[in-house]
Design a protein around this nucleic acid. Structure first.
Lengths: 204, 204, 204, 204
DNA sequence: CATGAATGAGAATTCATTCAT
DNA sequence: TATGAATGAATTCTCATTCAT
């Protein structure tokens, strides 16, 4: 049977597209973008290498898509957390804690997303990613300033600083080698660091 | 009299060694460790590829040396800045500002040093580098706590968070695309962010 | 219907595989394993260097395959010859003569197979090869001893000695530079040497 | 003090020449001609690499000299052994046993001398070496035939066959892995193999 | 449209040889 | 004359991308 442009075909294309991204994400989670070769992705997705190029024009394009895909989910989670809490300070605490906990569930992926460079075009995606975080946290900061919970401060710069502070602390050996209990305590401490930097009354 | 390595010869060796590191550092500054190929370094240093191996046993060794060389100077500058100031808060302010100003003089290099992974062995050097920063800042933090200028807090975690906050803020487009005047103002703001996070009375 | 490797494709793969082995064997025949570079094999086989690695995982693997391929045929021929003859002595004579005649058809290859070391992994293959000869001749020797045609003697040691005696004699200038007629006479004489060493009644 | 063409200088040149050969022989003994690099020889001899080229025009020339030097001694020993004994058979037995015992004192060197190819020009040296053995043993064989101790046989071919038989047996795993006692017994057996091949009354 | 074999431009590394000092 | 740093061609192996089937 020849292939026709049916709804069925379209659906199959979506499935293959998704399976490629999933395979890529898995590889990046295991060993970073360095370990991502087109052959490895294809094998893991159960397709031929040539077929990859029907879905992604180049390795770079694939990496960018994997990045965006892996990233989108993370940001959504944190955005959701940023909506629950009595005060802006409380909501920021929740957002930061969520960021940290999610990252620590898959440290290799988090590291790849946050820090590993790989390719210039991917760096652009990373900037966009950082910007997305900046947007999420900057919005909270603006609100906090408006409601007089936070110091007057440049919202985007403080947002970036918070993302950096969290990311750096998370990849500290002290963090990655700690037990779950210790980790949770340390996460609280970094969150507290950030809250002190922005809020009049950070709690404890 | 047997032939010996004369002072002249020794001097020439030092020069070649230095020119290799310089060429490597230039390449990393332009496009990160990714762009560092032995052939490119050799060409840039004006020597043959084989000659590289008289000075560095492998590409990894060269990368680590470039890293250490570029890095050492940075840390010394910041350590020096950490020694001048009336209060611990003031000295931390100076140290952070120096960190920022130096990094912004060569953002691509700063990025490569702080974030770009590249090779496992280089990652180890990077961990040492981060640890050196952590040591410098953590010492200040401990002193601040002791003198009751700073909050009680885990010194190394806060130090890491500060490094991350600074690094992230520095590679923000808002920072890299700003004029010198704007940048200086923004640097002050990130420094202030960090000081608020650690000090009872951060000044302004 | 999904696309499958057709019989045609499979056949082509076999052809390429064979052409690589053939090219490699030709190079070894001309100048030994020393002359075997991946680039040379690829050029001779009419393919790209990268393609070699689809068929052989490394140079060592290719060498071992070339060795095994060239070798297998030789041993089979001699084994077959060892089965025809009225007495064990006669059968040993046939086996030795076959060994000699085949080796002289391609002395350089014979030399490479028997003596040239090259790589550690290849040396293992060579030991196996020697062992295969030892097996073949040792079995005959055991049978000869049992039937009281041969002297009591250590079968494997005598087998090795016979292989060495034949190989050494075959690469003698007297042998390689002789006419076909002379060669045949000389082969008979070395065979006779071996037979005298093992058999009560070697004939002539 | 400048160097002058004195007897002293000439003597020193001889010493350096000898030390180079000694260093080269040591390297070959440890890991074969494959492991012989000009840099390694120079270091071991305590001179600069460039100096090697004052004594030997190329690596090949050095290898050939090393070969000749290592070889000469061996042949002399065996020649001497070939002179002691009541009968020709006895003298051949002594020569063969000496050949084997010496080879087993330094198996790696023996292997390199007997079998390892390395370079075309070295192969020529090896042919000369084999020829030297052939000469030594062939002379004995001729004498044995003349005195009616040995079968009528082509002397040089039989000599080559004996050398090959000994060499092959010596590098057999059974031989190299055996204890000293076992080895001595096995050497006797191979010697006996050779004697049966040439002598009317080989003894036992 | 899917396949996967083929491509070939690099990349890192080695080492015999040269030559300015 | 001795030195040993410099050379650079050669080697093995990788992998993103293409294209005939």
């Amino acid at each position: 049977m020849a292939y026709r442009a049916t709804a069925n075909t379209e659906q199959r294309k979506q499935q293959v597209h998704a399976s490629i991204l999933k395979a890529g994400k898995a590889l990046v989670s295991e060993a970073g973008f360095r370990a991502l070769s087109m052959a490895a992705v294809a094998e893991r997705a159960g397709i031929a290498t040539g077929t990859l190029y029907r879905y992604f024009s180049s390795k770079t394009a694939l990496c960018v898509s994997i990045f965006a895909h892996a990233t989108e989910h993370e940001i959504q989670q944190v955005s959701a957390a940023a909506k629950s809490g009595a005060s802006v300070t409380e909501r920021l605490r929740n957002a930061l804690a969520t960021f940290a906990q999610r990252a620590l569930q898959n440290p290799a992926l988090a590291y790849a997303l946050i820090a590993e460079p790989a390719e210039p075009d991917l760096d652009q995606a990373r900037l966009d990613y950082r910007a997305a975080w900046a947007d999420t946290f900057a919005a909270l900061i603006r609100e906090g300033i408006r409601k007089n919970e936070f110091y007057a401060q440049p919202d985007r710069l403080s947002a970036a600083a918070m993302v950096g502070a969290m990311a750096e602390a998370l990849i500290t050996p002290a963090m990655t080698q700690a037990s779950t209990t210790q980790r949770n305590r340390q996460i609280q401490q970094v969150v507290q660091f950030c809250l002190r930097a922005v809020a009049h009354n950070p709690g404890d």
